[in-house]
């Protein structure tokens, strides 16, 4: 086997780079790999805050799939992600396209759309959101102003999940800004050529814009899916999972099992199932987008 050459400036050892990234490697081992493995092992035990720990194999997983509260939480989480993620991507892409139309005052609008996404995870904003949807809150006051009947957001199991979905949708700015940067990178000549050939705006959007930013759409899709499937803060603060567990996500279930009931083993098993769901979702998206790429080229 040929020995690999490490090309570095003269006088620089091949270990300099390794030394520079060593904190990162230590961080990966300690804060990613270790908890990952540890969580898997704990998921195979009946570890509790009190009492003896025994190895019980896949018993936790059996209990989990037989438990109706786990199935319900998984349903809620999937429903939440399936509604939220496409909606958020469409809204952010549309807004980015509008902002890219060389309009004046783009700086103001970009900031206005971006602010909710950086403040949105702040507990203060989550508390504000809670008030917007109370029986006499701002949203219902507006509904009445326009002659619609007020909605009992916290009493109706069908409505409650939309409080959370709307909160996260309101935070579309970070996704939008990534789209905007990608739109800027598309060469203008492509659009000019399309215009000469008589393509309509809609046509050039589907034939030029979408294919050009495919990679970024994929990245946004994955980032949003990962965070949606882990949702915890908003339901924990706003609805406490209710009414009738209609906003009780898997993230909340894990937290409760661990810190409320002290079921360390079971909680870790659930978090591994959630990890598997996320990995599967990302894997499927990767396969699907990979296939369309092969078909189009």
């Amino acid at each position: 086997m040929k020995k690999r050459q490490y090309k570095n400036p003269t006088g620089v050892s091949k270990y300099t780079g390794l030394l520079l990234i060593s904190p990162f490697i230590a961080g990966f081992l300690l804060f990613t790999l270790y908890p990952f493995i540890c969580s898997f092992i704990l998921g195979m035990t009946n570890s509790r805050t009190v009492g003896q720990t025994e190895f019980i194999g896949f018993e936790n997983y059996k209990t989990m799939f037989g438990s109706s509260s786990f199935r319900r939480a998984l349903e809620v989480t999937l429903k939440y992600a399936i509604i939220l993620v496409p909606l958020k991507l469409i809204v952010s892409l549309m807004t980015a396209v509008l902002l890219n139309l060389e309009i004046k005052g783009i700086g103001f609008f970009r900031t206005a759309f971006y602010i909710p996404s950086i403040l949105g995870a702040n507990l203060a904003v989550v508390i504000m959101w809670q008030y917007l949807f109370t029986a006499k809150g701002l949203i219902n006051q507006f509904l009445e102003l326009f002659g619609a009947s007020p909605i009992s957001w916290y009493g109706d199991p069908d409505a409650a999940l939309y409080i959370i979905i709307l909160l996260r949708l309101w935070e579309f700015g970070s996704t939008m800004i990534i789209f905007l940067a990608a739109l800027r990178d598309i060469p203008r000549e492509l659009y000019d050529a399309a215009k000469v050939d008589g393509c309509s705006c809609t046509r050039s959007f589907f034939s030029i814009t979408l294919p050009q930013i495919k990679g970024v759409i994929f990245i946004n899709l994955i980032l949003q899916t990962i965070s949606a499937l882990q949702e915890f803060n908003a339901p924990y603060m706003i609805t406490s999972g209710g009414p009738l567990k209609s906003t009780y996500t898997v993230g909340m279930l894990i937290y409760d099992e661990m810190f409320k009931y002290g079921e360390i083993g079971y909680a870790n098993a659930v978090s591994w199932v959630l990890f598997t769901v996320i990995a599967l979702a990302v894997g499927i998206m990767y396969l699907v987008t990979g296939r369309t790429e092969r078909e189009t080229t």
């Binding site: 804060f31 990613t32 270790y34 908890p35 990952f36 499937l229 993230g251 959630l274 990890f275």
Partner: peptide, 25 residues
């Protein structure tokens, strides 16, 4: 440096790892 490709892929893996799995351990 040696194993550079391995370490750069760790960077990506770390970014995709859901925080919720880490929190309890």
């Amino acid at each position: 440096f040696p194993l550079k490709r391995l370490f750069s892929s760790l960077l990506l893996i770390g970014m995709l790892m859901p925080a919720i799995v880490k929190i309890m351990p």
